[in-house]
C-alpha cells in the first residue's frame, strides 16, 4: 500500500496493528484508541514511534493529553459523506497545536483531497481501487481560496488587500 503526501505516492512506513496482535519489534505502529488507552504506559516505553487511529465518532479531544507521545493520528472516513474528521483535523492543528502527522484513511476520495490538506491532514491512504494520479490532479484544480485555514495557502481576501506574505502571481 502507498500513502499520498502532497499528491505524491510514498512508501507506507506505518504498520496498523490489530488490538489482539503482538506489536512488531522496532516498527512504527498505529493502534486503535482502545488499545492506546489500555496499554498507554507500555506503548510510551517503546523505542519505535506510535500512532493512534480514531474512528469518526472518536474526537481527538480523547487523546489531547497524549499528543506529545503520538507521532501520528489517523482519522477515519468510514463513508466519504461523513465529514466529522475535517473538523477533527482542524481541532488537532488549531486548538491542540498538534504538529505530528495527521493521516486520513477509509473512503477517501480525490474530490475531498484538497479539503483535507486545507484542514491540516498530511497524508492519505487512498482506497486500493482508485487511480492514485487522480489525487495529484485534484490538487491543481483550484488556485483561489476563500477560507483562511492554517495551511499557508493565501486567501483571496489577503491577496486583494495586499496582506499576503508572498504575493503569488
Amino acid at each position: 500500500m502507498v500513502v499520498l503526501k502532497n499528491g505524491v505516492p510514498q512508501p507506507n512506513e506505518w504498520v496498523r496493528v490489530a488490538d489482539d496482535a503482538t506489536l512488531p519489534e522496532g516498527a512504527k505502529v498505529i493502534v486503535s484508541l482502545e488499545r492506546w488507552q489500555a496499554e498507554r504506559e507500555t506503548l510510551r516505553q517503546r523505542n519505535a514511534a506510535v500512532g493512534v487511529s480514531l474512528k469518526s465518532d472518536q474526537s481527538p479531544l480523547l487523546v489531547k493529553d497524549d499528543l506529545d507521545h503520538l507521532s501520528l493520528v489517523a482519522l477515519e472516513f468510514p463513508k466519504f459523506t461523513d465529514g466529522r474528521a475535517f473538523s477533527y483535523a482542524r481541532v488537532l492543528r488549531d486548538r491542540l497545536g498538534y504538529r505530528g502527522e495527521i493521516r486520513a484513511f477509509g473512503q477517501v476520495l480525490r474530490d475531498q483531497y484538497l479539503f483535507m490538506l486545507r484542514c491540516g491532514i498530511d497524508t492519505i491512504e487512498p482506497p486500493a481501487e482508485k487511480r492514485v494520479e487522480g489525487y495529484a490532479e485534484a490538487l491543481k484544480e483550484f488556485s483561489v481560496f476563500y477560507q483562511p485555514t492554517n495551511d499557508h495557502r493565501e486567501t483571496a481576501l489577503r491577496l486583494r488587500h495586499g496582506l499576503a506574505e508572498s504575493v503569488a502571481a
Binding site: F80, G83, S87, F115, Q147
Partner: peptide, 13 residues
C-alpha cells in the same frame, strides 16, 4: 457567500 463557498471543513456536513 465567499466564506461558505467550498469551505474545506464544512462541505460534508
Amino acid at each position: 457567500r465567499q466564506w461558505s463557498t467550498l469551505h474545506p471543513e464544512f462541505s460534508y456536513l
